[in-house]
Structure formats: structure tokens, C-alpha cells
Design a binder for these strands. Structure first.
Length: 454
RNA sequence: GGUGGGUUGGCGGAGAGGUUACGCACCGGAUUGCAAAUCCGUGAAGACCGGUUCGAUUCCGGUACCCACCUCCA
């Protein structure tokens, strides 16, 4: 059995991964709040933890891994979107979930085992909040239910901060009904046409963090193996999840291993909605950047480091994939290379795995390359469609070959060179050898120009 | 102010206390009508200052700079 080592945010150490039950691994990743298209930053954890999912399935068996990623479909951002567009909330969340599936599928991410929606777990959330009140960790005030952070001595452990430090530099809005400024909302009242559910505290809706606690407990149990998400969720979201779950269930941990991916950057700055420098996965796909290329770029950088999205990286990834696709075309995948699995088992070192893939390519091991690349979701049979696009270049190739033959006899290559320039300008790679002529669409392929030449 | 992370060759980007990362680009060679592609090969690094060590880019401490979190965000 391959030993998997993961950097655990909870212990701040890279440590061997030991499942609670090797026949029933349980993994939870925080999914999107569904009110808009997923941007590239949303895609990074999806792809990174998809690699984790694939690795765990490879090592422990396909049926041994349960992977849950939620949809948060109740949230004030969604309410705001509904208010500004006049559309029903359900329409917005349904449409966004459909987009999310389309876009993440395009990136080659496997669907998780379960994709629960928060609104299907309101009853579990209410039960959990009742439990917290009963045990003295939460209190009702002014129509709200709040978690009392002072009752949980480990609060701040995950993110390495103390309550007093946080309050010293606090920028939190202090509501008068809070016993402590850091107390956070479990339930809040809904007035008017805001979405609401009946509860012991009146008609209301859940706070931000409780849905993950309720859904993970329901689907994975009170304590599970891995909880994953973006580093920006470490505080307060994950800290609050831990507080809720551990206090409600009386457990020592919520999840044994916590994984956090670093942010996506653009021009060295975090991609974020507030900075307005974000772009969606769909934007990239619409620009003609294939999902497989986006995936490759995301995996070029280790998940615990910031990743800068650049056009150069996309071009490099595309060139590599073209090469590998050509090498493995029609080849039956063999078994994944131990070097690739070893790299992935070492804290999901996808950059190291890609290096190992280059080694396989250089060695000409097409079957091994294909199987190993598929370990990280590349070179899959369903993802190569982007290479097949474009018109048939055979007529042009025949014409070009004829010109070349004539030139060889006359020693006048000017007509050949002129046509070659045209082909190159249209983004076609021109390969001439003693054996003949090959025309291959390249990165800057211009179908319109080709049409004009035909 | 508090907390966490980072700084590697022209660029991207890993591992390892001592032996070539890897990719792209560059340069040289093979090949080619010229190229492209391909193959072979060379060169190039570890922010700064100390410490530990026979030996550190790798461990420890400090400095500088960068990024993130503390407010919705993956």
C-alpha cells in the first residue's frame, strides 16, 4: 500500500495519512455558493481535490472513497441576486448549479459521490442548533441564535489565533445582542419575502457555517477523514464549522486532516470579486482555451502555493498536451507509473507528477504516459475533442506536396515558400520530410484563413 | 496591530543536508532545399545576514521584500 502524506493544516505538519476505516474513506470539500458562474479561483480546489479523490480511489479502491462537495443554495448573496434581478431564488440556484456542472465537467473533474444542497438539510441544521443550545454552547438573542465562542476553548486553533488577538484587531461589526464580539450566527430571522423556514426561534434561515457541519455529519459522520477547501476559508468558516461540530457531537476533532489550497492570482494579486480582476472558467473556455489546458495549468503549481494565471502558462500547457496527445494517440493505457503515484502521494505534488510524465514521454512509454496522465485527469478519452476540431487539411497538404515536388525538380522553391508562409500565418504547423508533407493545426489556428486558401 | 505562507537559473516550477529535477526559452549538433517538428548535447539558481555541520539552496535565528487571512470570497 502506497503511503500518502498530506500537509495537515490542523497540526501544521506533513504527516502520513491514516484512514479511520480503509474500506470507507470520507472526504468533504466546501463547494460553491450558487449565485454566479464559477471563476478560476473556484476551479482550483475542485481540480486539486479531484486529484486527491482519484489518488485515494487508486490506492484504496474505487468503492472505498466517499467524496462530498456541497452546494450552498441559501445565502444572502443569492437573496441579493434575486432581489436585483427579480428572479425566483430557485431559478438562480438551479441555473448556477447547471453551469457549475458544465464548467467543472469541462475541467475533467469527476462528480463527487454526493453533492448535497443546503436547503435539503435545514431540518438537520435546526436539530444541530437545538443541540448546541441544550449543551450550553449557543444562545438565542433578539431572534438570532449565536454560537458563544468563549464556551469553546479550542476556538482559533485551526487558524492559529487567539480570541483576544482577534478582538484586539477586530473589524467585526459588533451587534448589541452578542455576548462576545466574535460570537457568530447560527440562525437568523427572515422577514418579508426572504427565504425562511419555521424553527423553534421563529421563521428564519441558517447562518453561513452551519450547513457544512450539518451535511458532513449527516453524510460522513461526526468525525471523518479529510476536510478540504480554500485557505481563505480557514478562518472564519472552518474554524466555525469545527466549533459547531465538535461542541454538538462532543468529539475531539471534526476531521482528522484539513487541507487548504492557496489562492489563484492574476498579475500577482489575488483573483477576487472585490478586486474585480476575476474571470470565470466559462470566459476561458469561450476564448477557446480547452478545459484540459486549464486543468494542466492549475496542476503545474503545487496546491499550497499561490498560482499565477498567465497566457504563457496556458500556451505551454497546450503545447505539452498536443505533444502528449500525439504520442499516446490510439495507444491503450497501461498502468500508472510508480513515479507519478509517488509524487501524488507526497502531498499531492502535481508539479512533480507532471515532471514524471515528461520522463515517460521522453522515454517513449506512451502506454505508461497515458495511464499516468489519467491519474491526474489528463489525456482522458473524453477530453481530447479540442484537438479534433477544424477542417480537413488534406487537400491543402496534397496541393502543397505537389508544389514541393515540382520545386525539387526546378530548384525554384519560391512558390513553395510562399504557400508555407500562408500556412504558417494561418496557425498551421508545416512538417516536411523525405517521406512527405504533414499539416497540423497549431495553437494560433485560423479556420477562416484556411477556408480562404482552399 | 494579530495570524499564516512565500522569496530557487531568462521564465515557469519541484525534490533532497553532500551526487542532473523537470518543462519552456537560449546556445551547439544531427536532420531539412530553407524551415518546422523530432532527437542528442552544453550552459544557467537558490533574497540578505548570521548560526549548527566535515559540508546547507535544503535545518535554526534574524533582516528585507511579497502574498494571504482577520469583512463576502475557493
Amino acid at each position: 500500500m502506497v503511503e500518502i502524506r498530506l500537509t495537515n493544516s490542523r497540526t501544521r505538519k506533513k504527516e502520513p495519512f491514516a484512514p479511520i476505516d480503509a474500506a470507507d474513506l470520507r472526504v468533504y470539500a466546501c463547494g460553491p455558493t450558487v449565485y454566479d458562474r464559477a471563476h478560476l479561483g473556484n476551479a482550483r480546489p475542485v481540480v486539486v481535490f479531484d486529484v486527491l479523490f482519484r489518488l485515494l480511489r487508486q490506492v484504496y479502491g474505487e468503492d472505498a472513497v466517499t467524496y462530498v462537495r456541497n452546494f450552498t443554495d441559501v445565502d444572502d448573496k443569492i437573496n441579493a441576486r434575486a432581489a436585483e434581478t427579480g428572479r425566483p431564488i430557485r431559478d438562480i440556484t438551479e441555473e448556477t448549479i447547471g453551469w457549475y456542472h458544465d464548467d467543472m465537467d469541462a475541467l475533467g473533474a469527476l462528480r463527487p459521490t454526493h453533492e448535497p444542497r443546503a436547503t435539503d438539510y435545514i431540518a438537520q441544521m435546526i436539530a444541530m442548533i437545538e443541540e448546541l443550545i441544550e449543551k450550553g454552547f449557543a444562545y438565542e438573542a433578539d431572534g438570532h441564535v449565536l454560537f458563544e465562542v468563549r464556551k469553546f476553548p479550542d476556538y482559533g486553533q485551526l487558524s492559529g489565533r487567539s480570541l483576544d488577538d482577534m478582538i484586539a484587531g477586530a473589524r467585526v461589526e459588533v451587534a448589541p445582542y452578542k455576548r462576545d464580539p466574535m460570537d457568530f450566527v447560527l440562525w437568523k430571522p427572515s422577514e418579508g419575502d426572504l427565504p425562511g423556514w419555521n424553527s423553534p426561534w421563529g421563521r428564519g434561515r441558517p447562518g453561513w457555517h452551519i450547513e457544512c457541519s450539518a451535511m458532513s455529519a449527516e453524510l460522513l459522520g461526526d468525525v471523518f477523514d479529510i476536510h478540504a477547501g480554500g485557505i481563505d476559508l480557514q478562518f472564519p468558516h472552518h474554524e466555525n464549522e469545527i466549533a459547531q461540530s465538535r461542541c454538538a457531537h462532543g468529539t475531539r476533532v471534526m476531521a482528522n486532516t484539513w487541507l487548504h489550497n492557496e489562492m489563484v492570482q492574476v498579475e500577482g494579486k489575488k483573483m477576487s470579486k472585490s478586486l474585480g480582476n476575476f474571470f470565470t472558467v466559462r470566459d476561458l473556455l469561450d476564448q477557446g482555451i480547452p478545459g484540459e489546458v486549464i486543468r494542466f495549468v492549475l496542476l503545474m503549481t503545487h496546491y499550497r502555493k499561490p498560482m499565477d494565471w498567465t497566457a504563457e502558462k496556458a500556451a505551454e500547457a497546450e503545447a505539452t498536451l498536443r505533444k502528449w496527445r500525439a504520442l499516446t494517440d490510439g495507444v491503450e493505457a497501461d498502468t500508472p507509473s510508480p513515479a507519478v503515484i509517488a509524487a501524488l502521494a507526497d502531498d499531492l505534488n502535481t508539479a512533480g507528477a507532471i515532471a514524471a510524465l515528461h520522463d515517460l514521454a521522453r522515454a517513449g512509454d506512451a502506454a505508461g504516459l497515458k495511464a499516468s496522465a489519467q491519474m491526474i485527469g489528463l489525456l482522458g478519452d473524453g477530453m481530447g475533442g479540442w484537438l479534433a476540431e477544424g477542417p480537413d487539411l488534406t487537400p491543402l497538404a496534397v496541393r502543397f506536396a505537389a508544389l514541393r515536388e515540382a520545386a525539387k525538380a526546378s530548384k525554384d522553391f519560391s512558390a513553395v515558400d510562399a504557400m508555407k508562409q500562408q500556412l504558417l500565418a494561418a496557425g498551421i504547423e508545416v512538417r516536411m520530410s523525405a517521406a512527405g508533407v504533414e499539416l497540423i493545426p497549431g495553437p494560433g489556428f485560423d479556420a477562416v484563413a484556411v477556408e480562404a486558401m482552399s
